[in-house]
């Protein structure tokens, strides 16, 4: 009898053991499946970037090969109807437009963030910061709309030219649009400067303004540069607002002339272009993508430095 009961107990424990084991196994399997699922979602963004890059290269290179790289990049004439596919006007317009917007937007944004970070009373800082937040949330079409119906007529009557839409209007609109990102990033950088630096400079007899310019700004240099680079990225990538104010003719850029940016060249013909013309648009997107990648790499470099 004792033997029997011992056997019985043994078999029971074995049963429980195997049950536990299988439960643990199932749990382990479950955990592994969940791990795999999270891993896959983690890879989505990498996959998207690869997909975008591959797609742009695959669809952008045939037209470049057909047209020829030099005549595509440096041709001054864009007229798909007569087989001319030179995008130099778009490239130059994008560069001039971005440079102009940055030349206006970055100094104003920088000075504004210096004021907010160091000089402004708390109440004023809260108000302006809130307003800047609001500005950054305004959709780009709204900027375009105001540019189109207020700025363009104002430029026309002020400078006495037949049409106000063109590079100048685009530069002003872009300058306003990059303001919030410039202000936010450089404000963060300036706020992070240790107070001891400034105190030491003040104790040595520098005036507050001298302290800010010679001590705080150099200390926040990387962050401020990053804000400027971010502004460049924003300005070069903007399409809708620019399309509404730049006139959209494929001219070589000049300040009051109707011009076309890289972005607007893509957007304006996409809906009806066919054949080689359509392929050439993908090539323009590829060129724009290369520009953006260079800007991104620069931005990451400066952001990484400002973190250290």
């Amino acid at each position: 009898m004792t033997n029997e009961s011992v056997n019985h107990a043994k078999s029971a424990t074995v049963k429980i053991e195997t049950k536990r084991k299988s439960a643990r196994k199932a749990k382990g399997l479950c955990e592994k499946a969940i791990y795999a699922a999270f891993f896959l979602t983690g890879l989505t963004s990498a996959l998207c970037v690869v997909l975008i890059t591959v797609y742009l290269i695959a669809s952008g290179t045939p037209a470049i090969r057909e047209i020829g790289l030099t005549s595509f990049l440096f041709g001054k004439e864009w007229s798909p109807s007569s087989g001319e596919y030179g995008i130099l006007p778009f490239i130059l317009t994008s560069i001039y437009g971005t440079a102009g917007a940055v030349a206006i937007g970055v100094p104003v944004g920088f000075m504004c963030s210096l004021y907010l970070s160091k000089v402004a009373p708390h109440k004023i800082r809260t108000v302006i910061e809130g307003a800047v937040g609001l500005l950054s949330g305004i959709p780009s079409v709204v900027f375009g709309l105001i540019g189109m119906s207020v700025l363009v007529p104002a430029i026309r009557s002020f400078f006495g030219i037949p049409d106000g839409s063109g590079l100048f209007a685009a530069i002003i609109v872009l300058a306003v649009m990059i303001l919030p990102s410039v202000i936010k990033v450089s404000l963060n950088a300036l706020d992070a400067v240790p107070k001891e630096y400034e105190d030491a400079s003040l104790a040595l007899g520098a005036t507050p303004i001298e302290t800010y310019l010679r001590v705080s700004v150099p200390a926040a240099r990387s962050g401020i540069t990053a804000s400027a680079v971010l502004g460049v990225g924003r300005a070069i990538g903007e399409a809708t607002a620019v399309m509404m104010v730049s006139g959209n003719a494929a001219n070589m850029p000049s300040i009051f002339q109707s011009v076309r940016f890289l972005t607007t060249a893509i957007a304006s013909e996409m809906s009806y272009a066919t054949g080689l013309g359509r392929q050439a648009l993908f090539s323009i997107a590829l060129i724009l993508f290369i520009f953006i990648m260079i800007i991104n790499a620069t931005l990451n470099f400066f952001l990484g430095r400002s973190k250290k």
Binding site: C48, L51, G237, A239, T263
Partner: peptide, 23 residues
Amino acid sequence: IEYTAQTLSGIPSVIFGLVGMLL
């Protein structure tokens, strides 16, 4: 993954539109 996410947030919307259309 971090780097690609950063890259993704810097790509202008017109390129997303184009690739979205193709894809």
